[in-house]
Lab assay of single mutants.
Amino acid sequence: EVDTLELTRQVKEKLAKNGICQRIFGEKVLGLSQGSVSDMLSRPKPWSKLTQKGREPFIRMQLWLSDQL
């Protein structure tokens, strides 16, 4: 189980620290539009309420944070 709230907090922190905009992060890392990324980072759904497809971007965020992506 992933703590989506904590994960998105860490992602936002790393984006800010490295000067990466959400649009680029969305396109290059998540394969999503800036609007989708913005929504996901500001209002993450609980892991238990996400479908497999809904969980994929959060898994990619985890990999990106651990420099595996």
Rank of each mutant, 00 (worst) to 15 (best):
L32S: 06
E6T: 08
D67W: 01
K53M: 03
D39F: 03
L65K: 01
E6L: 07
R60V: 00
I24L: 14
V2P: 05
P46V: 02
A16T: 11
L32V: 15
I24F: 15
G19Q: 05
Q52M: 09
D67P: 06
G26D: 03
I24S: 10
G26H: 01
L50F: 03
G54C: 13
L63R: 15
R60M: 02
S42K: 13
K14E: 11
S33A: 12
L41N: 02
S36L: 14
D39P: 07
F58W: 09
W64E: 00
R55F: 01
N18E: 14
I59Y: 11
L32C: 08
K45N: 04
Q52D: 14
G54F: 11
V11P: 08
V11R: 08
M40Y: 05
L30A: 02
L63G: 06
K45I: 10
R55Y: 01
E6G: 09
Q68F: 09
E1K: 12
V37N: 02
S48G: 13
R23V: 07
S48A: 11
C21A: 12
K49F: 04
L7D: 11
T4E: 06
P44L: 08
D39E: 14
V37E: 02
L63P: 01
S66Y: 13
F58K: 00
K45E: 07
P46W: 14
G54I: 14
K17A: 10
R55D: 00
L32Y: 04
Q22F: 07
R9Q: 08
K28F: 03
V29T: 04
S48T: 10
E56R: 07
Q22R: 11
S42M: 14
E27F: 07
E13A: 11
L63M: 14
K17R: 10
C21L: 11
L41P: 05
D67Q: 15
W64C: 00
L7N: 14
E13F: 07
C21R: 10
S48L: 06
Q22Y: 10
W64M: 00
Q62N: 02
Q34G: 15
Q22N: 02
L32N: 04
L69V: 11
E27I: 08
C21T: 15
F25P: 00
C21N: 14
Q62G: 11
D3C: 04
K45W: 03
P57K: 11
L30N: 02
R60I: 01
S33K: 14
R55H: 01
F58S: 00
P57Q: 12
T8G: 06
P57Y: 14
C21V: 07
L41D: 03
P46N: 05
F25K: 01
P46R: 11
M61I: 03
Q68G: 08
R23S: 09
K12L: 03
V37W: 11
T8D: 06
L5K: 15
V2K: 14
Q10P: 07
K14S: 07
L63T: 13
D39Y: 03
E56V: 07
R9V: 08
E56K: 07
L32A: 04
F58C: 00
T4Q: 05
V29F: 07
W64H: 00
C21M: 12
N18G: 09
R23E: 15
N18W: 09
E56N: 03
G54S: 10
